[in-house]
Structures are given as structure tokens and as C-alpha cells.
Amino acid sequence: MTEQNQDPIVEDNHGAFLARRAEKRRGRAHRARHEGETPLNLVAMIDMMTTIMFFLISSAVLSEVGTLDVTSAKAPSAAAGAPSDDNAVKVPKVTVYISKDGFRLLDQTNNPDFAAKFSGPIERCGGGAADAGKATICARDGVAESEPLVSRLDYASLYNQLVKIRLEPAWFEGFGKDGNNVVTIGADQEVPFEAIVKAIDTARFFLAPDGKSEPGAPSASSDVTGFLLGDGKAPTLEALEKSKYALKPAEGEKKKRERYDLFPFPSLVAPRPAGG
């Protein structure tokens, strides 16, 4: 370019080109004025739109932030703390305790049936009677201990176990009453927040296991396996993550379909003291 500018012939040609272009523009403007045709100058508008676009793109939030309702054990909400009727069947107060070796399922009312059926280790984890030393749902097989805790915990089995508890005929009706389908979440001191939120998410609603048809409304006489991941035998994390929520039938054409509550009211409790 520098060499071109130094060449007098090229420079002269360039000058002539510019002059011709200016003349042409003048001619066009003159013609436009006489013929009543006004050219629209869009330069300012393009400038403004570019600026607005950059501002909007830079401030655009591509991922939406929502919230998760929880109740602190010290400040129970009306939903979580409704007193139960003395004559009614006492429903278990389900507690999921998270530690680095897995989940423990406990009942704060110390119902012996609950302990016998649901607190002991599941089949994959050795089976047998409830034992404080053994987790009800041990860590996933084949996942190294060096992996983050959230990857090692077996959330699919936790979901299956919670479904079995919720659909137990002896307590099904009791759980359905307001404020009884609370799940209390506790954890060891070092358990990361992500593991807690994932447990809360897992416990909230019934799923329609992937690859199956809608299981219908849960009831005391429901076929439990229709709601279980992996037919209750070998639930996988993939199945948990791919399954959508089981939905109630649509009431109106435009109404959003509601979900079936499993344990939608989470409550957090203080961790055990270190070494306790």
C-alpha cells in the first residue's frame, strides 16, 4: 500500500477515482432531490443497534437461577410441622443421613416396622438387619474413592428406597396428609452442599422411569415396580437422570400438568459432632 501511494501514476488514478465517486454521489443526491426520492441514511441506526446488541449480549443471562425451599430444623414451617392427630396412624418421620460411605435411612419415630424393612443395608450392600455401622445404601460399585462424594453416592437406589417407603400400604394415607411427607436431611460435617441438594432433588417427586409408560397415580395398591428405576433390581445413575417426572393428567388444555409428591418438603438438621 505504501509503495502504491508513492507511485505518482497510481496516486493520480486513485485521485481521479475518488473525484469520480464524489461527483457520482453529488449527481445521485441532486437527482434524488429533483425527483422527490430521498435516500435513507441508516448509518446512525446501525451504530445504535450495534451498541444496543453488544450491551444486551454482554448482560444476557443464559442460565436461569431458581430457588429451592428448605426448612431449618430450628425453624419449622407450617407445612413441615403440622401436629398429627393422635388417633391417626403414626407415619414415619423419614431421615436421610449422608456420610462418605453412603446413605442411612432412619425414622425419628423409631417405628420397628420401618427399621426392619427399610433401615437395613439393601441387597447390593450385603442385606441383613439395620446396623448403625453399615450404610443402608452404600457407595456405587466401581467408583474410586478418589472421586468426588457426589459421584460416589447411589442416588438411584435412594430414590427406589424412598418410593418403597412412600408406597408402603400401612403409611400411604398418613403420608398424604398435609405436612407428613417431609424428609429430614442430615449429613456429616464434611459432606459438600452439592450432595445435599441432589438428595433433596431425588426425594421430591415420583418419576416415570425411562423407557416405561406413565405409571399412573401412586396409591397404596400401586404396583411399586412401575415407579422403580431399573425394575428395582439394578438402578443406575443414567436411569435416574434420564427419567422424567410422572405427571398428573391434564385438567384443562392450557394447564401445566402437576407432579406426584414423593417427599417434597426437605428439612435440614445439624450434623453429628466430629468423631461422633
Binding site: G66, T67, L68, V70, S72, V197
Partner: peptide, 9 residues
Amino acid sequence: QNVKFAAMK
């Protein structure tokens, strides 16, 4: 009296 956790949807 009421607690919410912020989370990405």
C-alpha cells in the same frame, strides 16, 4: 423464618 437456596435451573 424462611430459607431458600439459589440453584441453576
